[in-house]
Computed example of a mutant assay.
Amino acid sequence: MFKRLKATRQMLTELTQTNYGTFRGWVRHLLAQIELVTGRVDHWVGLNPAKVQRLVFVCLGNINRSAFAEGVARSRGGRVCSLGLATTTGAPAFKLALQTAPRFGIDLGKHAATHIGDYEYQEGDLLLVMEIRHAKQLVAYGIPIGAIALLGAWATPKRIHLHDPHTLSERYFYTCFTLIHVAVINLLEELRLAGSPCVQS
């Protein structure tokens, strides 16, 4: 009985680490999904394609999630950049990001991070964040609410909270990048079909 419980606990731990990164990541995922189904983030899960001139991907360090999202969007004809809320401008992509991105055909070898302090908002920018708290931080910086969206709203399935993979397992890095890859492709397709000027036809 003890062995079975131990094996079950180990299996659940591995599933959590693979799919959500950490137990905290799982909890934040659940809380974010509640925010979604209750309509509390409705203003950050839609867009007006005709107004989108440029995609700006945002995370904390701009060395993993937003760096990869930028790479995917750029490879598919998007007018794009990325930035970090807590980073150093010029920092390279993290080693596991460099190792994981080529599995999706993306090279992050030349990526250099940009701190939000070195970013200037332009009319037509759509800032795509990985977490609800990132959106709130951008509002505090003075970014218009209507210029912010949660990238995970375009993932399949929807994953409003895209937990930071930094320092976590290779398996979760792949899971996180898979979700970001799908979300960016779906977003670009929606924009392309709507004739948005931020995507090359």
Rank of each mutant, 00 (worst) to 15 (best):
L30K: 08
R4S: 15
H43E: 15
K51N: 08
L5W: 10
V52E: 00
Q17G: 01
L36K: 07
N62Q: 06
L47H: 00
Q53I: 01
L55Q: 00
L15T: 05
R9K: 15
V52P: 02
L36C: 12
N19R: 14
L36H: 13
L12M: 11
V56N: 00
N19H: 15
H43P: 04
L60N: 07
L15P: 03
R65Q: 08
T13M: 08
Q33E: 14
V58W: 05
G46S: 08
T16V: 05
W26G: 00
V27K: 13
L15I: 09
T16H: 07
T18A: 15
N19P: 04
E14F: 10
L47I: 06
T13A: 12
V41W: 03
W44V: 02
D42F: 05
V52D: 01
G25P: 06
R4V: 14
T8H: 03
E35K: 13
N48Q: 14
R24H: 11
L5H: 12
T38M: 15
A32V: 05
C59V: 02
G61Q: 02
R54V: 01
F23G: 03
Y20W: 14
F57K: 03
N19D: 13
D42G: 11
L15N: 03
N19I: 01
V52T: 03
R24F: 11
R28A: 13
L47Y: 00
G25T: 04
I63M: 09
T18I: 09
V52R: 00
I34T: 15
L36A: 11
N62H: 00
R65W: 05
T18D: 13
R28M: 15
V52H: 00
V45Y: 01
L12A: 11
T22Q: 04
V37W: 15
C59L: 08
L5P: 06
N64D: 10
A50K: 12
Q33P: 02
T16Q: 07
R4E: 10
R24E: 15
V37R: 15
T18M: 06
T16C: 02
T8R: 08
Q53R: 14
T18R: 08
G39Q: 12
L31K: 13
W44T: 02
G21Q: 05
R28W: 05
Q10I: 13
V27R: 07
L30D: 04
N62T: 06
W44K: 03
A32H: 03
L60D: 10
V58E: 05
L60P: 02
V58Q: 08
H29P: 01
T22H: 08
L5Y: 07
R54N: 06
V41H: 02
R4L: 13
P49K: 01
D42W: 02
L5N: 10
